[in-house]
Amino acid sequence: MSEQPTRPDNTRIVRRLLLTVIGMFAFGFALVPLYDVFCDITGFNGRFTDGQAAANTRSVDTSRTINVQFITRVNQGMPWDFAPEVTSVRVHPGETKVVNFLAKNRTGKNMVAQAIPSVAPGEASLYLNKVECFCFNQQPLAAGDNVAMPMQFYLDPEIPADIHTVTLSYTMYDMTENVTPDALAALMPTTN
């Protein structure tokens, strides 16, 4: 056949195309961390993993007041009571506030939960700095116990002027199944 001399070429092209295929398959998975980075930068979807903000010197902008609302929800099938101590606070940008969230484990089992935050509008999440938050870690809670969990935050004075209300939502998810019984016992206060 006349295409005899082109045969080696075929192999080379096929190899390159297969590499592209593998590369694109990997890219599909690479979209996962890329998406997180994208969300972090743009405030997309109001997700954030912000915890690094220290109490550095910053001015408090007393000319503006922003209403910060708190919403708490428990995931389906999670028998906890979970509520903020106050449903909203008015803060000046730059001013640090502490809000307590109350949780109660209604069951007879020791449990571990994780609170997942979300902010509306998404853009505001870029300016909401949490100095301390129970959502940074998993929250263990012994059977029938309750706890007050603090969340300390401030709004960056750079927050755009058209934002007047920021809503911070926490959804509590049951993580008990993801930890071993021993680890669970270790997390519990010894007085229990």
Partner: peptide, 27 residues
């Protein structure tokens, strides 16, 4: 360029459903 991305997406659905990953689960 894109069929491998679809393959990735269905694989993530599979592992989320059966193997305990949480690509698409807020929890």
């Amino acid at each position: 360029a894109v069929m491998p991305v679809l393959a990735g997406a269905v694989t993530m659905v599979l592992t989320d459903k059966y193997f305990g990953t949480s690509f698409f689960d807020a929890a």
